[in-house]
Design a protein around this nucleic acid. Structure first.
Lengths: 137, 137
DNA sequence: ATTCTTGCAAAACGTTTGCAATCCG
DNA sequence: CGGATTGCAAACGTTTTGCAAGAAT
């Protein structure tokens, strides 16, 4: 459990450290992969209502404590991250691994878009088959 | 109108060239930006029921005639594309421009993911402010 | 005749919101 | 006290689905 850590993070960010928030955040910290709202709800049980989870995750994302991630499933996921990275998602079994490529980031930094856009964020997700699903054909 | 062209594309792909499909596809071909299902529905009027539009767009995407795009709005968009490219979306006014970066593609081609993923597709979207919205500050 | 496609209505999801009760500073 | 947070229920927008009617091969 990451309850103490979650509490510190909340206080550090000037957010009230309520039980609901502590539970939601510590769940995200403990997770090994980006969690959907339903995932979080299943983990926190009755300690936080679904609507509260939505509000909490949104608030934590606004505070840059969590990152909102989109695997193009028709719903969002949230991840507790320190370093910026991307994901490769297996389209067969759903396995997720983190991907980092310095060349990628270097390019992303200075993608100069012709018509003068100023880019504030980007979303890059990779999709394919993981090692074991490739063998299963 | 791109009706004749739409019809040819459908036949070429072995799909029945029904009025509903022709209307949906020619609408996408004529579009200057990725269309949501509601966008398509507004354009085709009563020539295709909403459920039919969903089914048609999905079918066209499966046949690689359209690309399904996700601007993280809670809904998908569809685009008729010949060349592979990405998008920059203005978060203020919604303006969309196409982005191409050969270095980006070159890297994407051989992102070797440690754990042996084989990458079949990727999604990259850029978000920020367009030229005129930057000035409006 | 048999398969594919469509319209319709209903339902399924994910998400948001109004409001009253409650908690916290 | 006064503002922030929560639970609840209801609503919302997008997408999917079962089914019967219709069209195509």
């Amino acid at each position: 459990m990451q309850i103490i850590r979650a509490k510190k993070i909340l206080v550090n960010s000037g957010l009230e450290a309520t039980p609901a928030r502590i539970n939601v955040l510590s769940t995200c910290i403990s997770a090994t992969r980006p969690l959907s709202v339903a995932d979080v709800a299943a983990k926190v049980g009755s300690t936080a209502h679904l609507a509260t989870i939505y509000r909490t995750l949104e608030k934590l994302a606004s505070a840059n404590i969590l990152t909102r991630i989109d695997f193009q499933e028709g719903k969002f996921r949230y991840e507790y991250v320190s370093d910026h990275h991307h994901h490769a998602v297996c389209e067969s079994c759903g396995k997720v691994i983190e991907v980092q490529d310095k060349r990628l980031e270097a390019i992303m930094e200075n993608v100069k878009v012709g018509s003068g856009f100023s880019i504030t964020r980007h979303a890059l997700e990779l999709f394919g088959l993981c090692h074991s699903c490739q063998k299963k054909g």
